[in-house]
Simulated assay, not measured.
Amino acid sequence: MLEVNVPIGNIFLDEGFDTLKDGNFERLKISRIELDKKILRRKTDRGTDIGLNLNSGIKLRNGDVLVNGKNPIVIEQLSEKVIRVRLKTSNNKKVMILLGHIIGNRHRPISIQGEEIIFPIQADSEKEVFEKLFHSIINYIELTVEERVFSPHSGADVHEH
């Protein structure tokens, strides 16, 4: 078993990993929740047994390179169900405040991309729950359920229920 304590870089954020962009690496597919774990044991897509025992202060990210050498291993975050909320009219402060308040009361991590707010869900049926929660502003927003790699906004560190 290969034990890893710290990633050596990230294929999306750091230079020097151009040779890996052609897919010449092993993949360690893990969920967003598992990215927060300090100790984890998994197998790569090619069967290499990996034991993560991360140093203090290290948090894995999608694209992190764990081993440099003949068989580099790259973290591949699994996609998950999310709700994408798009504002139909921009700069409506009341709608934005209520939207933030309602999502915040559900303790969901969020990602803000332009005029959209994205947050994870467990099942498609949660769309109905949020449509009811957003009843007072539903005419000003558009809700879409999709599957994607979700990265929470770094300043929105919340605990999920």
Rank of each mutant, 00 (worst) to 15 (best):
K127I: 13
I117Y: 00
E15R: 13
F17D: 04
L133Q: 08
F25N: 06
R86E: 08
I75T: 03
F119L: 07
S79L: 06
N105C: 09
E26C: 03
G47M: 02
E34K: 12
K70V: 07
H101I: 04
M1R: 03
K59P: 07
S151E: 12
D49C: 00
R42E: 15
E26S: 13
D18P: 01
H101N: 15
S154N: 03
V82T: 05
L20T: 04
I8W: 10
S31C: 08
I138N: 10
F150P: 00
P120L: 09
M96A: 15
D49K: 10
R46S: 15
L35M: 14
N92W: 07
L98Y: 08
I138K: 11
E126Q: 12
L143G: 09
T48I: 13
E142H: 14
Q113N: 09
E126Y: 04
G100V: 00
E160F: 06
E142W: 09
I83L: 08
I39R: 13
R108F: 02
L28P: 04
E146R: 12
T89V: 14
I33P: 03
N5D: 11
G114P: 03
R106I: 02
N139H: 12
H101K: 12
D36H: 14
F12I: 11
N53V: 12
R42H: 11
K21R: 07
S151A: 11
R41M: 15
N5T: 15
L20H: 02
S125Q: 12
S125L: 08
R86P: 00
G51K: 13
H107W: 08
K81A: 08
R42A: 00
E80P: 04
V67T: 07
K29Y: 07
N139S: 14
R41A: 15
Q113P: 00
S125M: 06
P7W: 02
E126S: 10
E115L: 11
G23K: 01
G155N: 13
K29R: 10
N91A: 10
I138V: 10
V95E: 03
R108N: 10
H161A: 14
P72Q: 05
V145A: 06
H153G: 03
R41H: 09
F119P: 00
D45M: 06
K38T: 09
I39H: 11
L87C: 09
V6T: 10
V67P: 05
G57A: 05
F130N: 07
R108V: 09
